[in-house]
Structures are given as structure tokens and as C-alpha cells.
Amino acid sequence: MTISKDEVLYVAHLARLEIHDEEMDKLASQTDDILSYVAELKKADTENVDPTAQSLSLVNRLREDEPGETLGSENAVKNSADHYDGMFVVPKVVKG
């Protein structure tokens, strides 16, 4: 086994996902199948091979720092479930 149920729970927590008990068995076994399969990668000889982050050989793209069009705060918050005066409103951060 590559990944245990506890590890699945831990990783889910890192990703801010809650896994319900009824999902757990299936999710853990499928995740384990997939991770065992991709572990095949370890067999590839990659000594002295550079990693590829993306396929274009472009480097940083710079431009003049000139103001352009913006959405405006009213448009930017329009899709939020809760907003006030151009700001996002969220529930309290600290319990208690």
C-alpha cells in the first residue's frame, strides 16, 4: 500500500477537503491504486536530466508598468456570496 487512510485524511485536510466516512473506503483505495501506478515513474533513469516546468522556452515576460483597464471593485465582488461596499465579507476567522 502506498497511502494509508490516515494519510488520505491528512492530505485532504491540507487541501481543505472534508472526507465523509461513506466516501472514505472507495477514495482511499482509488487513491492508492493511482499512486501505486504513478510510482512507476521512479524506474525512469533521470540522472542529469533537467526538469521541465512548461514546454515553451520563454523566460520572464516584462512590460512597462502602465495602468490599464480594471474591473473595478463593484464588478470584482459581484460574484461573491457576501459583499459590502466593494469588499468581500467572510465569517469570523477565530472561533469563540
Binding site: 515513474l41 521512479k42 525512469a44 533521470t46 536530466v49 526538469p51 521541465t52
Partner: peptide
Amino acid sequence: QAQKVRTL
């Protein structure tokens, strides 16, 4: 490792 394999 996957990124290196991508190069290959």
C-alpha cells in the same frame, strides 16, 4: 521526478 520525465 515527473518533471524530469517530461523532459525525456
